Amino acid sequence: MYQFITGLPKVELHLHIEGSLEPELMFKLAQRNNIEIPFANPDEVREAYDFSNLQSFLDIYYQGAQVLITERDFYDLTWAYMLRCKADNVLHAELFFDPQTHTARGISFDTVMKGLTNALADAEAQLGISSQLILCFLRHLDEASAFDTLQQAQLWKDSIVAVGLDSSEVGHPPEKFARVFAAARKQGYLAVAHAGEEGPSSNITDALDILQVSRIDHGVRCVDDPQLVSRLIEEKVHLTVCPLSNTKLKVFQSMEQHTIVDLLRQGVSVGINADDPAYFGGYMNDNFTAVACAHTLSQKELGQFTCNAIDASFCGLERKLELHQQLQAYMDSQ
């Protein structure tokens, strides 16, 4: 099965680019920018990646982002991730980025965007990987900060396909950002939101009804509400599930307890994603393999994860057709 997974075409819709900062690159950028970090070597960083919940992860996640200063830093970060996409046969990726994490440190929005977009353009030209950018608002910050970030994005509107909502879910429900999302939709952005990871299933319903999102990031707590599961199936709402992240952050105690396969078999549109792979122990192939090792899955079911992600992606119809054709060609060859 591992050989099949390695060759399987993939589409990633839930990836925080700041969460792909590997310890080695963290140290390289810290030295380049003369920034002190509280670790002696990359191994010490990895030893710190023992999280008890979402907040314990976020604390070290924001600490790591401090080394990102220049356009070159953001380019190197993004290029490193796209090389991992190439290695894992990811054909299309939609990347979250958190501008508030950087602008709060005095890094300009333009610096972040130039680094990201140049790397993504090079990845499409040199690696054949298409991509989209999703601007995420940090939900632990206030509405005013989100509105300010939306305003800063104006000059880069053509490079950003959607807005999202991430960071600490508990205590920061979707309705906190209702007006920001309404303004973003009016400007032509699509919308997604993290919901139902550590927060209740009602956050998923509110993200759909109040924020009017196109898909839900995580969404695994939907199983607590059978009527919601039925709605997700009927309305073909896609869940960007992140298996290794969910077990690392104790959303599930083990991969065997994860509900992604049950949801797939019920007809919910679910996909497999890496979330913050540098922190959670794996990129796309690792996540697919972890699920396949814990659950008995057919090749058709593994391929369905990619099929669902293609349909839920924000790329154009022509690119979707290309992706479906590549997936079908691979499935037919097995």
Rank of each mutant, 00 (worst) to 15 (best):
M1N: 06
Q3E: 15
G7R: 02
S20G: 13
P23I: 01
P23Q: 04
P23W: 01
L25Q: 03
L25K: 05
K28S: 13
I37K: 02
I37W: 05
P42D: 12
E47M: 11
E47P: 00
Y49N: 10
Y49T: 09
F51M: 08
N53G: 13
L54K: 04
D59Q: 12
I60D: 07
Q66K: 15
R72W: 06
D73E: 12
Y75P: 06
W79V: 07
Y81P: 02
A87I: 00
H92A: 02
L95H: 04
F96Y: 14
D98M: 10
Q100F: 08
T101C: 12
R105C: 12
G106V: 13
I107D: 12
D122M: 02
L127Y: 03
I129T: 01
H140C: 09
F147V: 04
D148K: 12
L150S: 06
L150I: 02
Q152L: 15
A153H: 02
W156E: 08
D158F: 02
L165W: 01
S167M: 04
S167A: 14
P174M: 09
K176G: 03
K176F: 10
F177V: 04
V180T: 15
R185S: 14
L190A: 15
L190D: 12
V192W: 02
G196H: 05
E198Q: 11
S201K: 02
S201L: 03
T205F: 00
D206W: 04
L208H: 07
L208W: 04
I210T: 14
I210Y: 06
I210E: 08
V213R: 00
S214L: 10
R215G: 07
D217V: 11
R221Y: 07
D225N: 15
P226E: 11
S230R: 14
R231T: 13
E234C: 08
E235M: 10
S245F: 01
T247Y: 06
L249N: 04
S254K: 09
S254C: 05
Q257F: 05
R265H: 11
R265K: 12
Q266M: 13
G267P: 11
V268N: 01
S269G: 04
I272G: 05
N273P: 13
N273H: 12
A278R: 00
F280L: 10
F280C: 01
T289M: 09
V291R: 04
V291E: 03
H295E: 09
T296I: 10
S298T: 15
E301Y: 04
Q304I: 08
C307K: 13
A312D: 05
C315T: 15
L317H: 10
E318R: 07
Q328P: 06
M331Y: 05
